[in-house]
Design a protein around this nucleic acid. Structure first.
Lengths: 142, 142
DNA sequence: TATTAAATTGTAATAAATACAAATTAGAAA
DNA sequence: TTTCTAATTTGTATTTATTACAATTTAATA
């Protein structure tokens, strides 16, 4: 059940707690780029004692150890993503969905030559997603 | 003095007000990716009656008409950038500076093929900038 | 099992952004 | 030029994401 996440936390020398395991598992199994509030609401179902501060603390430590990444695409709140291979993101301005875009960053090479130490690469595209531009229903009901 | 910005606003059919001219001019002349608060503080010097709400309203309308762009790289606040040619951004985690990176986005072609209508492209890199990695002084004093 | 540093919880505080009503103004029409 | 009106500006109040912090609890080591 949690072996994978126990291993990940041990490898990063992060103290293992049920909360951290649940949060890491949730992010691995829900690739929806949830906010802290969304993670909190989902996990509170099975753990009513969960505190939102714990979710904030936990995503911070997971972030600092590189197990997850934060996504700033929306500009109004931070979203989190289990770290699986390099990919970019597309934000639909109509339905709000954030879609994974599986491309590499061809600029990384030239970035390495310009003297800055690059630790993170984020590619964000914004517009209207395939579904919405076909006129299908979306969460805004428009 | 303001001819350029009068022309830009007219072309976009935005009503011309002194506040909008000042804000647009400020962004054109200060490529530091300022926050609303920074724009507000700077312009309040010469116009003590300026309201922060006006700055919020103005950057919104300039944004909607494509004269400026918003930058979400920091995750804690929105920053604004006069729209000049395509470029990416680098955020230094040490000094906080946001540096323009003059590269195109080679992924745009493949993005156009995946069915989403792309309206914006943002390339963000994070790490330690050239200056800071050389151990020079920075605004954090570290 | 006992110990202790670290984590969790809950409340309070902060700060960016938004909502909104009243006063002002840009720009079109007379 | 003057009048008019919708749009803009202003200032205050509110909302919401995030951070700060103290008290309680717990993971993991000895």
């Amino acid at each position: 059940m949690f072996e994978k996440y126990v291993r990940l936390l041990k490898e990063s020398q992060i103290k293992i707690t049920p909360q951290r395991l649940e949060i890491l598992k949730y992010l691995d199994e829900h690739r929806t780029h949830p906010t802290v509030d969304e993670i909190y609401s989902a996990l509170k179902e099975n753990n009513p004692a969960l505190s939102k501060t714990t979710v904030y603390n936990s995503v911070d430590i997971l972030l600092n150890h590189g197990l997850i990444q934060s996504i700033t695409i929306s500009g109004s709140e931070l979203r989190y993503d289990f770290k699986h291979g390099m990919h970019h993101h597309f934000l639909c301005k109509k339905c709000g969905e954030i879609i994974d875009i599986n491309v590499e960053c061809p600029n990384l090479g030239s970035m390495l030559e310009c003297g800055h130490e690059v630790e993170e690469v984020h590619g964000y595209f914004k517009g209207i997603c395939k579904k919405c531009s076909k006129g299908e229903t979306n969460r805004n009901g428009s």
